[in-house]
């Protein structure tokens, strides 16, 4: 929770406390949790919730195509990976984050097809820690065509990569212009990002993200780097289902 930056805004500390600080509700062990733990997390014997894993999400999806979420597992020990699942989504597996040499914090936006819980499950040693939140939604986010298809040429600006590094806080934010088509909208085939990698100046991997259909259109991702890596430069590379590759480099 120390990594959550809401306090940098005036009144943000009190606001965050009033919001609930991202602590997982005690009754979140229902819904699809048993099924997804078995099918998507490899049926682990042991799991629990822990205040060291916060998941910040709005209570209502104001826009079912862009639901902002922050998973912060920096309060846990070393994290091997974080798996983001959405209970009643047609694509329950949203993201798998391998933090590697980055810290176990990931900001992202997802599409919401129907109201229900979203969960971030962190593997620490042999144990899974699950954090989550219930998001109410009118839904339809996964089956609506991407907004870009309403324009005459959706390829205009396609793949544009934006990013910025904040050495003081270790934040890295990366945006890629991409329709993230799920394949569920009429007449629009699936076309979405599949993975994104961060590497350091020597070309060694920092962190890796597996991406699935629920990630929002024109996604913006937030990472947290330790002080040495936060000085940059960081190279960002991504791929999509059509074989397009995207890359860029960001310096502090």
């Amino acid at each position: 929770m120390a990594a959550i930056l809401s306090r940098r805004l005036p009144g943000g500390d009190a606001g965050l406390v009033a919001f609930g600080s991202g602590v997982t509700a005690p009754d979140l062990d229902r819904g699809m949790w048993d099924s997804h733990r078995e099918g998507l997390l490899g049926a682990p014997d042991a799991w629990r919730s822990d205040p060291g894993l916060c998941l910040l999400a709005p209570r209502n999806a104001e826009d079912a195509r862009h639901v902002p979420v922050l998973a912060d597992a920096t309060g846990l020990g070393p994290v091997e990976r974080i798996v983001v699942t959405i209970d009643y989504s047609p694509f329950p597996l949203a993201l798998v984050f391998h933090p590697g040499r980055a810290l176990p914090l990931l900001g992202f936006g997802v599409k919401y097809e129907i109201a229900g819980p979203i969960r971030a499950s962190a593997l620490t040693g042999a144990e899974w820690i699950m954090g989550g939140a219930f998001i109410d939604a009118m839904g339809g986010g996964c089956s609506a065509p991407a907004a870009t298809h309403a324009r005459p040429d959706w390829q205009e600006g396609f793949g544009e990569m934006r990013a910025r590094l904040w050495p003081d806080t270790g934040r890295l934010r990366v945006g890629i212009r991409h329709p993230m088509d799920t394949g569920l909208a009429d007449g629009v085939p699936a076309h979405h990002l599949t993975d994104l990698t961060l590497t350091d100046a020597r070309g060694d991997e920092i962190a890796r993200l597996e991406i699935h259909e629920p990630l929002e259109e024109n996604p913006v991702l937030t990472f947290l780097l330790p002080p040495a890596l936060a000085q940059g430069p960081v190279r960002i590379a991504a791929r999509d289902t059509s074989g397009f590759r995207f890359s860029g480099e960001v310096a502090a």
Partner: peptide
């Protein structure tokens, strides 16, 4: 500009001078 995520910005709640207004923090979050 500070590198916050939208989730953190939303959770921070409204501007202190306007936090007391009726329909906040709901309208701010939206």
């Amino acid at each position: 500009g500070l590198g916050l995520t939208p989730a953190e910005t939303l959770a921070a709640g409204p501007m202190p001078d306007f936090a007391h207004l009726v329909a906040n923090p709901a309208e701010y979050c939206r």
